[in-house]
Structure formats: structure tokens, C-alpha cells
Design a protein around this nucleic acid. Structure first.
Lengths: 238, 238
DNA sequence: TGTGGCGCAAAAGTCTGACTTTTTGAGCAC
DNA sequence: GTGCTCAAAAAGTCAGACTTTTGCGCCACA
């Protein structure tokens, strides 16, 4: 559906990248460019370009006379959208989802506060529309429709914050929300409390009430964390 | 000092990457691989690998029959440490520094709260040691010594949070703190209030008081933002 | 038996040239 | 003016030769 005829480079990268992030080649493993080229049935040029990209993501390091070494997790560029996608598609998806949700819980409240100061009239309108859309789809198993509005809502807040670093987390948030809806168990309609909170955040932003927008978004985030604790308890449970 | 004999690939990348992030080739500009190869006096293979890496950072997009197009800023992988370094070295350093400081102000308080729950005994000890080091170097123009302890302090907090995404921001924070000390005007000794706050954060973490660790770190962050507002006022000044 | 240096070979790095594929835009026919 | 065809442009792919770095084994020497 998405693509299979995207050029050799992309295909090999999308095969080798996930394999590495999934731990198929544990840190310290040594690969050889020539061998990989044979395995994937591509020329050395293509494989070299793939390795270079993986190297720029700090997934591997290439050294003469040694080969291509898989780096430990702490070295990886975990903010690279590609790496995030690969990891979310892999085995440690739950851990990844938790990390990202905690990140959201830190960033989004502050972003909402800034949005209350900086949002344009158009952004306020769009935000309200999203909130209303969430209300409209909050009952009767319309999870997909709800998801669309939810993603749009959070993306607008991050954009409206006026901070570039926040804005670029829009895709990450989208992935997390989509992941929650699609993969994890979510037979139920969304939490009514969360829906209300979104409406109130839209209000606060529209009124320029930064403190309230921040506090309300913090509540949303805490709700998301609680939900995650129930669905996928963290390693150390009291 | 750092390196000049790092292979052609790295040298070309470190030349072309900063040029793009600095806006020397405005978004929409079209480059041709062959032309670039000639300009930098390297073979097409090397230039192709460079372009592939820039493409993976979403700085450029390569299309057949068109060439290598520079992408708009909103597309860039602004969390890529390499991109951050390039941009901090370039012209829009002030804007970049502000974005990153705002990001810090969102992340670090939450990280400190988590650190209070999760920090090991060793981490608590190291944190206290850093705080004491900051006190010891806070007077008498020992800015470099202070910086070392400051960076170490924040890195430990981010690590101790136990969240991978937070931990990986250690380098970013280090860059920001170093930038503040080295580039921006900083004749004075560090703000005594900030020093005290660090000591108290270390205390709070040691005592496992998450709420206090978070609140105190928020104060530190707000101080950093105020300082930035004075040294480099934001675009829209009231 | 331990230690230091010499040299080999393995692997990445670089270069070159030929060929393929996609895509755009110009020119032509209708 | 609309639509089709086709040629050229640029990236993509491949194959092979050569260079450079560097880990490690081997041997001489202490």
C-alpha cells in the first residue's frame, strides 16, 4: 500500500534499520558492507549509502579493517522520526510508547501555555473546531474519527506554541495517539473527562489564559499516563 | 584541533550541512550532485553519500530529473544533534538558543521529578557533588569550572529520570549551557540564586521529594529564560 | 617466557565509467 | 488549445580497480 517501488536504497534501509532497532543485531555486532550487499542483493554503492545513513542516525559506526559495528542504544538518535517509527513497529513498542508519552507530558503543557499567548485567530478557530469534532465522535465507537480530531488538536497546540522544537513533535504525538488507538486495547469510547478537558483547553487558549491552558493540558497528560499504567504497567510495579 | 583528516565524506558533509542550515541555499534551491561533486573536488560516490545523509536529515530531497532540492525549515530534523550543532554555529544561533532553552524549561522540571523517584544512591551522590562544585566555583570568575559542574549536574538529572528521551537531551543542554557561557556576554559570576536552587534540587532528589525537585527545577528554568530575555530579547517586545 | 616491532591482509574509503530509470518539458499533431 | 510522443536531463544502479587505514599474527630479541 504505502510503497514497495521506492528505489533499492529505501527498501534496504527499511529492512536493515528495523532489524537493528529491534535488536536482531545486538550492540557490538559487526557487519561487513560487502556481505550485507550480497545478502540484500544490491551493489556495494547502494549498501554503502545505506550504511552511511544508519551511521548518521548513530545506529552503527563504520571503521576500517573492523567493519560496521552496531552501537548501544544510548547512542541512537532516538528523536529521529525514522528511528521512532522503526522502534514503534518493533518489539519494544510498549517501552517506546511510554517514553514518548512521558515526553509529551512534559512538553505539551508548556506548549499549551505558549499557545495561549501566541495562537492566531485562525489557530484558535481550528482548535475549537477540533475540540467540537472530538465531542461529536466521542460516543458510538467512532474511534477513527475521534483520532483524527485528537491528532489535529495536539498538532495545532504544538504549532501555535511558536516554538520550533515543540512544533516538530507533532508527528511523534500523532504516532503515539495512533498507536494507542490501533494497537493497544481500546474497545471503549474515549474517556469523557479527557474530551471535556480538550474543550476547556481550546477555551483557555482562545481567551489567552496561559496558566489555565497549561494546567488543563497537564491534566490531559496525567490522564494519558494513568491510562498507560493500566494498559501496560511499567517494569517496577508497587 | 577537533579534526581535519576525517575522510572526504565527513569533510564535505561538515561543509555543505552548515551552508544549508545557515540558509546559504534557501529552501527551494536546486543543486545537482555532479556539480556539487565538482565544486568540492570529490567523486560522485562521495557526494552521493553526503546527499543521502542530508536527505535522511530532511534538509534536502533528491528527485530524478530535478536534482537535490533544499527543503523548508519546517521539514528539517531539528532534533538531530548534528543539525543542532550546525545551527548553533551559524547565524540564527540566538533563535536556536531560545528554542532549546524553552524546550529545557519544559523537560527538565519533569525529569527532575522523575529523578527524585528513580535516582540511584550513586546518582544522588554525584548530584550533590556537582552542586557543591557549583558553589565552590560560583565566585571569582571561575566560569569554566562552574560550567563543567553545571553541565554535569543537568546531565545527571536527565539520566536519573530513567526516561530515554530525556537522557538523550543531555548533549543539547550541554551545548546550550556552553553557548551561554562562551558566546553570550557573561562577565559576571553566575546568579547566586541559581546556585542555591541547584543545591536545593540535589537535596530534593536525595530525599525523594518529586514535587519539590520539579518546582525548584522550574525556578531554575524560569531564571534561564529571564536571563535570555535580557541578553537577547525575543522578536516581539512589549 | 614475555615484549616489542614488522609486515600482511582485511575491510572501508575512493574513484571512474558505463548503463538504467524516471520524469519533465518541448515540440508536434490533431 | 489540448493531448500525445519523444528526447534529454538528472538521479539511481552497477561493476571493478585502486588506496588507505589498522588490527593482529608472527617473529626476533631480551
Amino acid at each position: 500500500m504505502t510503497a514497495q517501488a521506492r528505489g533499492l536504497h529505501a527498501r534496504v534501509l527499511d529492512s536493515l534499520g528495523p532489524a537493528i532497532t529491534a535488536g536482531e543485531y545486538p550492540p557490538g555486532s559487526v557487519l561487513r558492507t560487502d556481505e550485507l550487499a550480497q545478502r540484500f542483493e544490491v551493489s556495494r554503492s547502494v549498501m554503502r549509502e545505506v550504511v552511511r545513513v544508519l551511521e548518521s542516525m548513530h545506529l552503527v559506526a563504520s571503521r576500517r579493517r573492523v567493519g560496521v559495528t552496531v552501537l548501544p542504544t544510548e547512542e541512537w538518535n532516538v528523536y529521529d522520526p525514522q528511528v521512532i517509527r522503526w522502534r514503534l513497529a518493533g518489539a519494544d513498542r510498549p517501552r517506546q510508547l511510554r517514553s514518548l508519552t512521558v515526553l509529551r507530558s512534559a512538553v505539551e503543557p508548556v506548549a499549551a501555555g505558549l499557545a495561549a499567548r501566541n495562537a492566531s485567530a485562525e489557530q484558535c478557530a481550528a482548535l475549537t473546531e477540533c475540540a467540537l469534532g472530538m465531542v461529536a465522535t466521542s460516543r458510538g465507537r467512532q474511534l477513527e474519527g475521534y483520532l483524527v480530531h485528537d491528532i489535529a488538536f495536539h498538532r495545532i497546540v504544538l504549532d501555535a506554541s511558536g516554538n520550533e522544537m515543540f512544533a516538530r513533535l507533532g508527528d511523534v504525538v500523532a504516532e503515539v495517539l495512533a498507536g494507542r488507538t490501533h494497537h493497544d486495547v481500546m474497545f471503549e469510547d474515549p474517556d469523557p473527562a479527557a474530551v471535556t478537558l480538550h474543550v476547556r483547553v481550546a477555551e483557555a487558549v482562545r481567551e489567552g489564559d496561559a496558566a489555565r491552558a497549561e494546567a488543563l493540558t497537564r491534566e490531559i497528560a496525567e490522564g494519558a499516563l494513568r491510562e498507560l499504567d493500566i494498559l501496560a504497567p511499567p517494569p517496577a510495579t508497587g
